[in-house]
């Protein structure tokens, strides 16, 4: 899942980038509203983590602007202002969830998974396809009850495919969802990961639609 974190405190921003990365998110970071607009204009994110007070303005203004522009990306608002009225203002401005500082890294991950799940219209966090089950929270994949050990990238690709199993995901979309801006991507990276996934789960599970991309196949 690709996340944009908008926060001006450098230490916190760094902690979120590394910490959410450890939880399987691909994290991009910006520290001003103007940079955030640029990032949102050029890329698609699965969720946004937004600080309320930014050096060049209010996070709520940014939120209102992108919502009025039709952007429906789920937003988790981070704020040091933790009064009821602040929370109401944040939610009314278009935030999907709200977290007061300081927070627990796991809670940020959980809330991000929750708001993306809601945005996709799913009720349960666990994803199922055929005899395969994937739990985003614990980053585990089981097949007939047996755990399958996957790397972080393999897990992320499988998660993306299982979120909308019948959709065809292009190589470019998968790359975007897996990697932040600063990360170097080899041209055949996705192919290598898909190859390893097929080796672990059985070839028919991931179907190649030639010239277009990948989708889940009948095992």
């Amino acid at each position: 899942m690709r996340i944009l974190v908008i926060e001006d405190d450098a230490v916190l921003l760094d902690g979120l980038k590394v910490g959410l990365g450890l939880s399987g998110f691909a994290v991009d970071t910006v520290n001003t509203i103007s940079d955030a607009f640029e990032a949102l204009a050029s890329d698609r994110f699965d969720a946004i983590v937004l600080d309320r007070m930014l050096p060049d303005g209010s996070g709520l203004d940014l939120l209102r602007t992108i919502r009025s522009g039709g952007n429906r990306t789920p937003v988790l608002l981070l704020t040091a202002k933790d009064e009821v009225t602040d929370r109401i203002d944040g939610l009314d401005a278009g935030a999907d969830d709200y977290l007061g500082k300081p927070f627990d890294l796991d809670e940020v991950s959980a809330r991000l998974r929750a708001i993306t799940r809601r945005a996709e219209g799913r009720a349960r966090s666990e994803l199922k396809w055929s005899d395969l089950a994937l739990d985003p929270a614990s980053m585990t994949v089981t097949r007939n009850g047996n755990t399958v050990s996957l790397s972080r990238r393999e897990f992320a690709i499988l998660l993306t495919l299982m979120e909308s199993p019948t959709t065809i995901h292009s190589k470019q979309v998968l790359e975007e969802r897996l990697y932040g801006w600063q990360e170097e991507i080899e041209s055949n990276t996705i192919e290598v990961h898909v190859h390893k996934l097929r080796a672990k789960l059985g070839a028919p599970l991931i179907e190649t639609v030639r010239g277009v991309g990948y989708r889940m196949g009948r095992a």
């Binding site: 916190l12 760094d14 902690g15 927070f103």
Partner: peptide, 9 residues
């Protein structure tokens, strides 16, 4: 709160 959040993270 913000530096505390950074420290905790």
């Amino acid at each position: 709160k913000t530096p505390l959040a950074g420290l905790k993270t």
